[in-house]
Design a protein around this nucleic acid. Structure first.
Lengths: 202, 202
DNA sequence: GAGACGATGTTAACGCCGTTCACATGCAAT
DNA sequence: ATTGCATGTGAACGGCGTTAACATCGTCTC
């Protein structure tokens, strides 16, 4: 380890590059993420990135996976919060989904960019599956042994509405001139309407 | 007018470039859309595009606007179809939304890319507003004189769920290995559940 | 008709991008 | 100590968006 002197071998370049993507995306948006910019921020030559990621798309895939896992963590945190202090778990989890998108729009965009990531990557797929299970978690009626990719109409409605609201707030016209709290309140209202709806028989 | 000989002045370059974006996006995805590729397809030098669009982002904004209007047309067509032949108008309009996204994923992506278009452009904003009204159209209870940007919790739920399903099918893991008809059937089921939900009191 | 002028298209160049390849460096096993 | 391998470097490639100086042409005026 020794000091932080400039060493020829960086040591943790793969993760440091991910961190650079994080910072640049947070500051300037996902479109501004450039291999050269990431390398410069880490203090390394541009070509060194290719020792750890086969191309830019692979780096963005790793970042998307990271972001997905962060989202899952946020949702599970919200669920535990509610389990300890009481409240509607489904509402809390859904709100956490939207809140994450509002707080980290660039991350949310990066997660769902089929054209700029390798969407069939194993780790990425596993992360999306974990997210799906996290959302399905509120549904006792789901048959657990069936195909994990199968969704009931109500599960589909739950994920779609929360995901759609997040998307419309991040990339759509809904957020125009509204504060974070106003957006969260609108989201809370929608999730409440959804919650009522999901109690209805099909 | 005369013949279709190679003339120095193209004549309809602005629209022809839009058409080129359409074709390239359809064939190779929105990420493959390049000013130089569009210019080459039209048979014109790359820099000529800048006589009609201040930059690439402006061209993509015009394309997004066009795509939005196409979506609105599809939805209104579906509505009229139902009005003449009977059926659930809300269901038909929602399904048209999802069907458009499945049929033209690149267009759907282009519509909602805040970072690559000028989302505050007048024409683009007008198109999004028309789309919003098209979706709100099914809701008699909406107070028409109020802020057109205001959405009730139920309207929010309606747009979000349909938009979210479309997004998840286009950029998410839901569509994995499913045929177009299977996807449309799943969408139909979700919209049905949504329709029931929207009849419930808040 | 002649000439001026503005709109539209061209050519050449700039810097930045992702990517590759030959090469340099240093760690670890022998 | 030597070898071998993983990791980082530097220079170069073609493609990108964009600009500026220049070419062409339709149209408006006399």
């Amino acid at each position: 380890m020794s000091t932080e002197k400039t060493r020829y071998h960086h040591g943790h370049l793969a993760e440091s590059l991910l961190e650079a993507v994080d910072e640049i995306a947070s500051q300037f948006g996902i479109e501004a993420v450039t291999l050269r910019a990431c390398a410069k921020r880490v203090g390394v030559s541009p070509s060194s990135a290719f020792r750890h990621y086969v191309d830019k798309r692979a780096l963005l895939t790793a970042f998307a996976t990271r972001a997905l896992n962060q989202l899952v963590d946020a949702m599970e945190g919200a669920k535990q919060q509610v389990q300890h202090h009481g409240g509607n778990a489904f509402h809390a989890v859904g709100l956490a989904y939207v809140a994450f998108a509002i707080a980290k729009p660039a991350f949310f965009r990066a997660m769902w960019r089929e054209e700029t990531i390798y969407a069939q990557d194993g780790d990425y797929l596993a992360a999306t599956r974990k997210l799906a299970q996290c959302i399905q978690g509120g549904f006792a009626q789901t048959l657990r042994d069936e195909d994990p990719d199968a969704f009931s109409a109500q599960e589909l409605l739950a994920w779609s509405s929360v995901h759609g609201l997040a998307s419309l707030l991040v990339d759509g016209p809904l957020a125009k001139g509204k504060s974070r709290d106003e957006l969260l309140e609108a989201a809370s209202g929608m999730i409440q309407a959804l919650d009522i709806a999901l109690d209805q028989p099909v």
